[in-house]
Nucleic acid binder design. Sequence first.
DNA 1: GTTAGCACTCGTAATGAGTGAGTGCTAATA
DNA 2: TATTAGCACTCACTCATTACGAGTGCTAAC
Lengths: 338, 338
Amino acid sequence: MNDRKKRILWAVVQDYVSSAEPVGSRTIAKNYDLGVSSATIRNEMQDLGDEGYLEQPHTSAGRIPSIKGYRFYVDCLMEPSRLTGEEEERLTHMIADQTTKVDEIFRNMARVVSSLTQTLSVAARQTRRSCTFNYIRFLPLDGQRAILLVVTQEGRVSNTVVNIPPGSSIDELQLLADRLNHFLHGKDISAADEQTILAFQKDVERDLTPFSRIFVSLRRSLAPKQKVYSGGAAGLIRQPEFQNVEKMQDILNLLEERDLLHSILDTAMDRPIAVRIGSENPDKSLADLSIVKAQFQVGGEVIGTMAVIGPTRMEYGRVIGLLYFMQKHLEHMLKNKE
Amino acid sequence: MNDRKKRILWAVVQDYVSSAEPVGSRTIAKNYDLGVSSATIRNEMQDLGDEGYLEQPHTSAGRIPSIKGYRFYVDCLMEPSRLTGEEEERLTHMIADQTTKVDEIFRNMARVVSSLTQTLSVAARQTRRSCTFNYIRFLPLDGQRAILLVVTQEGRVSNTVVNIPPGSSIDELQLLADRLNHFLHGKDISAADEQTILAFQKDVERDLTPFSRIFVSLRRSLAPKQKVYSGGAAGLIRQPEFQNVEKMQDILNLLEERDLLHSILDTAMDRPIAVRIGSENPDKSLADLSIVKAQFQVGGEVIGTMAVIGPTRMEYGRVIGLLYFMQKHLEHMLKNKE
DNA sequence: GTTAGCACTCGTAATGAGTGAGTGCTAATA
DNA sequence: TATTAGCACTCACTCATTACGAGTGCTAAC
């Protein structure tokens, strides 16, 4: 792969990304200053095709980059774009504006990035796998009902309204809760499973059946529910490669199958920003999509992930630039906040 | 509108709903036992066309119902379908299964109904406009932070982690909270706005500026956030009338514009189940969609709404039957639960 | 009032010629 | 030996033409 070939591959990707049309040798000779004629470029393109970096939709058409071509482009030829002033302002404003809820920021990130790049963007805070039990507290509500709170040491609260079993009082409930608190305090939240609670039931030598519904509520409120924020599907299907019914249906299925979005965000990453191009994606319904994924970390712990889903013909440099910028600023902001 | 015309209109709607193809006179003569020849039916159909109940896509095509035709069908010709055993089982199971979270039920309703009817279904619990303040409570978390809870008399809880201002303690915070509780107890939650809190600040003759962030958190956690659950867009765009790019984009826009979905659910209803056909919808982006909307009430209060969005060519009887069934069972279930 | 018969309409699918962008090869050139 | 000009060839795409058929609307007979 000599220097000229690299420059031609770069030019093909560049041109195809912006035009969505197969790129011909003449186009490159005209618009990219390589100092050689279209015939020379034609020869080089043929070689690039033989080596698997370029593809031809049909004999008499121009070339488009193959998965391998994009991969080479992303790994060796491309630079993350610098943001424009406008982009920079919009993102910093968004990150700085929401002083409280991190969830909100993730939601807005998905929206803003998708609107800037015409892609489908999804974001989610990481499920905290380690979540330490702090205490259970019952609060009064009215004669028959009480509010059951579970508080973790990280400051997360889940609440459920429970009926006070006939013959009990809220103080009695709290007494029991205190014993349970003592039992669970400092343990990981997963310890509060059915088994443990059954064991505890034996331990206190008391029939807990009247409270069983409370434990059901408890377990339910502890169940980790990771929210995936998504936005921009409307922008994505405006891209020329999705102008047909099947592709659009695929996108909509992807959007409604939250499981798949979850799994996209959940898969492990070997670097802070990773790119998966087309069929590099394990799921075959993502075979003609590319995904750029960024992890957000504070103090070594992953606190959220964002993925940009677009056509393989994606502005990789720009998307990576955006994600990099957000990573830097969001992590900085969160570190200061803690 | 004589009886035969009614039967012909009924047949046209029936046939078009299931076939999605313009219906010809011969089809009706063959498949619907009217006892007259296609020529007679042809004459009647011409009249129905003149009177605005039927339309012709082009001169040599069959007829399709007009908005007016559907309206007449829904108002005068149609009966809500009885559910099949399978449908009934699936719905009762769903309603009975989730013993706790009503939110979950609404989410599942949207999913199940859309999957049964190949429509886009949206559901939301009603924003409780009246929401009565109960009390504020601070709970310990660690040295620097506390958990601020706001509890309503209906048993809703919102929580935020707040920093304890330097020089204060959690007891001090609770003391202040108790005065605020006294001040706000039994009032509508909207009373806790900036104005009132400023007035209260004067009243207690104490500088509350160190607590300002807490009040910001408080207000934010009180902000009503109505969640709209949706499902089935993928099924809807599988319908033949949406097999083109523009229509699909419209659907996706509708899905991503949560505001519009909100407004669909929010608009007042004059009866428990209402039907809006095509251009009867105020929003013009809904002009070729029909919406069947049901309100769920417990004790005279509206507690949620569900809307089924489909093509004008919709199985009105079936959808209404489903919604009616759910209304009855869900309201029954909730009444018992309270 | 109803029906059979028939000419007429018009959307749709199939066919085929024409067009042009782009290639691949060859021979000339530096 | 690397580059370039020239040219035949390929193939998707467009557009007009044709054929087909479902369905109507009218007329005349029952």
